[in-house]
Design a protein around this nucleic acid. Structure first.
Lengths: 229, 229
DNA sequence: GCGTTTTTGTTACGTAATTTTAATATTTTT
DNA sequence: AAAAATATTAAAATTACGTAACAAAAACGC
């Protein structure tokens, strides 16, 4: 799981609440379970959640009222409604007061998870980070995004093919990158000529690393190549 | 209605397609209706939509395949699936390949509208947050609305084409913008001469960023261009 | 409307990337 | 050790990209 997503679960059915909590926690989420709408509201105020799952019919404060109050405090937080009622008017009301999704009971727990993930995917847009762009290869640095090697201060731009192949080799560092696998991934099929083409690129990559003997691309006869360092 | 939201509707059932189109247009949306997956894909490439509503079972190209292809070109566009199947596995698959919602037939048209609005509310909101008028590109600022770059205090007004291309590149930041895709979107078709024209504009954009080496427009041979920063 | 400016499109050609070819070398199998 | 399979390398051929210079079209001011 990403960075410990915090879920507020408002559900008065003790059984269902426990099942959901256990399941979601097993999936790596941090779950706070409230047994009624008022407690849920207090908990919402007391802490920072990433998403709310709210049962519509609850004692003391129903789910719609709770959702409206939460929306007043936070216009952006994702809200999923759970409900035993399958009335279309209720669904429309739930969505129109600011809910993002509306799941009717009985529902499969996997479906809830799928909808939860779909919603989180959309709301937590952190796609900027995620790919460590810089990789240290001994004294040589490889900027993956820029397809560039920095060799003793010198900047060497790689071609697309060179970069693709190097990424695959590094991904299998100290382990064999199989010929056929790399060929299919990069060249689309493992024909004779593509295999020779790959050989050409192996040669080119080796030349870039002559100044760094701790890095080597060694051949494993009949199998593929191994990037060792 | 906001600013004329454009919907791509991929639905092979002619009747349902017409009903939905009429209804959504009456609600102020602009609807483009495709009768099968292949036509839908072509239409997606040919213009700019705000949301896609995709039937899962369609001739020539099924909805899941279509959605995957669309997701490859645009990571952010909201997608709602429609389907006659009520299989949980299909719903989970649909959501996990990048769908935002999954509605099973028969459905009430009001429910579709409510879910559509809930999703648009979230995505247009996020867009406002995620794509502000001013975009910082290293030391250079790009005013999207005014199509202007601010380079070391100097104001450089971009032409429409330059701005269109730059916006598409930024939208795919650190990822490949496919040649054919950009050509169809901006130039209408991906003929040889339009491709050369695109090259010319890439050259122009690169010149604007010479003073900011952390920003680069890298060619991915045979595929397209990557705006990295 | 008319000339000017700006923007966009076209063309030609140089450069670079990739694939194909071929000659040679190495490793494995028999 | 010979034969077969596989690998290395340079170089030629092919394909894709980059850019300058020019042409056409659209937008603008008068």
């Amino acid at each position: 799981m990403d960075t410990n997503i915090k879920i507020l679960l408002a559900e008065d059915d003790v059984n269902l609440g426990k099942v959901l909590t256990t399941y979601l926690e097993a999936k790596g989420y941090s779950v706070t379970h409230a047994n009624n709408g008022e407690v849920a509201y207090d908990m919402f105020c007391a802490s920072n959640f990433d998403i709310c799952i709210i049962d519509v019919m609850m004692p003391l404060k129903d789910g719609f009222t709770l959702a409206k109050e939460i929306r007043k405090l936070d216009k952006h937080i994702p809200i999923i409604f759970l409900t035993a009622k399958n009335l279309q008017e209720d669904m429309i009301e739930g969505l129109s007061i600011g809910g993002d999704d509306y799941i009717t009971k009985p529902f499969s727990i996997e479906v809830l998870l799928a909808r939860l993930q779909a919603l989180l995917r959309r709301t937590t847009q952190d796609q900027d980070k995620g790919t460590p762009s810089m990789i240290e290869l001994g004294s040589i640095t490889f900027d993956v995004n820029r397809q560039t090697l920095f060799i003793k201060g010198e900047e060497k731009k790689l071609t697309t093919r060179e970069a693709e192949l190097l990424i695959m080799l590094i991904h299998k560092k100290n382990d064999v990158l199989e010929r056929g696998f790399a060929l299919k991934k990069i060249w689309g099929d493992d024909s004779y000529y593509n295999a020779r083409s790959m050989d050409v690129y192996i040669t080119k990559l080796r030349k870039y690393f002559v100044s760094e003997p701790s890095v080597q691309i060694i051949n494993v006869h009949g199998v593929g190549f191994k990037f060792v360092m």
